[in-house]
């Protein structure tokens, strides 16, 4: 794992813009770690599951541009 990735894993997370989400489930379906991203997006507004490896699959596949990465310190 390169240094940038280690830094991201320690400091980053996937957040959702709920106004864009239509709860389609494409994100959950494509998460390699089996995380129900859709539920996290709705309930918490962010994927707070420790299994998340920040692979970006959900961010890239979401057809609505709902998900993005942010720095943990900027997410409250």
């Amino acid at each position: 794992m390169d240094a940038e990735r280690v830094r991201l894993l320690a400091t980053g997370l996937v957040v959702a813009d709920p106004g864009r989400c239509v709860q389609c489930g494409i994100c959950s379906h494509n998460c390699p770690c089996g995380i129900d991203v859709r539920a996290f997006a709705r309930v918490a507004g962010a994927v707070t599951d420790a299994r998340c490896v920040l692979c970006g699959s959900c961010v890239a596949r979401c057809p609505r541009g709902t998900l993005s990465f942010t720095l943990l310190r900027q997410w409250t």
């Binding site: 389609c24 494409i26 379906h29 859709r38 057809p63």
Partner: peptide, 23 residues
């Protein structure tokens, strides 16, 4: 279920098992 998700069911990007929006 999510009605907009039907568009992805139609294109086979989403299986029907993923449609449910509440546990």
């Amino acid at each position: 279920y999510s009605r907009p998700a039907l568009a992805y069911l139609l294109t086979n990007e989403l299986p029907e098992s993923q449609l449910s929006i509440r546990s």
